[in-house]
Simulated assay, not measured.
Amino acid sequence: MVTIKVGALADSGDLYPFIPLIEGKIKPEGFNLEIEVIPTVQCVNEKVLKREVDVSVPSAAMYPYIQDYYYIMSNAVASAVDGITGMPLLSIKEMSLEDAKKSRLIVHGPNTTAFTLYKLLVGRYGKLVIIERVLDEIKGLGKEGDLLVAVHEIKMMYALRKLGIKTNVITSMWDMWKKISNNVPMPMGMVVVSKDLGKDIAIKFKEVYEKSKKYAEKNLQEIIPKDVEIMSEVQKADLDKEIVEKTIWADIQEYNVPEDNVIKGLQTFYKLTEERGILPRVNTLDII
């Protein structure tokens, strides 16, 4: 029997669809699952690039580099459709967008969607600072870097308030994206499945993932405590149940954008980034 290696990302919104599978609430038929929880999106991107996992949740910006080896699951592309997850550009000091272009920029990793959107929509920065973990990003703001793209916006804003750190919102990726894209969804992350498994197995995994996702969304009060437990263990940090719940609710919206709109967002994202020489060309969106 085939064993599928799953690398679930330790972020509340990306993790919740996998929890019923982790907990055995939903059981696959015809294949086994070997699930590990990966701490950061940068780690996920690296594992997918090296093809160390069969299923994972890389940045949308990684797809051009892995398009020959992975399918995109149509029911698992996180896409922003409003400012709820707008990826604001935050700084400690008041600064203009022109000031930002000369400042030290904090991002999760070099191939993240956040950094790619920054390059597409803002362009320049003074120095790039890579801080992979969300809470470490906050601690680095004003010390290691002057500004950051707040990917996990709800979690980020909550943590900043808890720490008593006041920030200045310079702009947001969403506000700039909707103007340049004609208001199509803004891709962020996606679940991909290895083509080495074959299309039939890939589709079977997609169906099981959908069952798991729906179970999680219908039983959030059962899922959230496990989400907090896994996240706290992997991130080695105390996480507030309320903020995890709010993060999941925001991501439920992102993971349930109609497929036609998701595809428009992906096509626009890859077209614009190729035209600007930011990402390689996507030959075909291989979506299952």
Rank of each mutant, 00 (worst) to 15 (best):
V193Y: 02
Y209R: 09
F205Y: 14
H108R: 04
I165V: 14
I92Q: 14
N182Q: 04
M156R: 07
K204V: 10
G164C: 14
P88V: 07
L105C: 09
L121G: 02
M176V: 06
V129K: 03
G123E: 02
Y118V: 04
L135N: 09
I130A: 13
L163D: 12
K93G: 06
V184T: 05
A114R: 05
A202C: 12
K93T: 13
P88W: 01
L128G: 11
L117N: 07
E98T: 14
K127Q: 15
P185W: 09
L89R: 02
I131C: 09
I92D: 11
S91W: 10
E132N: 10
D99F: 05
V191L: 09
M176T: 04
M190Q: 12
K178D: 03
I92F: 06
G198Q: 08
R124M: 08
E137I: 02
L105P: 12
M176R: 06
H152W: 09
V134M: 14
A159C: 05
G142C: 08
E98R: 10
G189M: 12
E132G: 03
E98S: 14
T112G: 15
K162V: 15
G109H: 02
I180G: 00
T113S: 15
F205T: 07
G140S: 13
A159N: 13
K127S: 15
N111V: 12
K101E: 14
L163Q: 15
S96V: 06
M173R: 08
I180H: 00
M95F: 05
K179Y: 03
K102R: 14
E98I: 12
K162I: 13
I201Y: 06
I165H: 07
G164I: 14
I154H: 04
V149M: 08
G164P: 11
I138G: 04
I84M: 11
I154C: 03
V208Y: 06
T112N: 10
I154A: 05
V134T: 14
S103T: 10
T167V: 15
L128Q: 08
K204C: 11
P185L: 12
A114V: 09
Y158V: 03
R104M: 05
D175A: 05
N111Q: 10
L105T: 11
L90F: 13
I203M: 07
D196Q: 13
R133Y: 11
L141H: 11
S194Q: 04
L89M: 08
K127R: 15
L147E: 03
V151Q: 06
I203K: 15
L163P: 08
K199H: 07
K102W: 01
V191G: 00
A159S: 13
K127H: 14
M190S: 05
K166D: 14
D175F: 01
T85D: 09
L90S: 13
I92L: 15
I201R: 06
I201Q: 08
K143F: 09
E137Y: 01
Y125T: 07
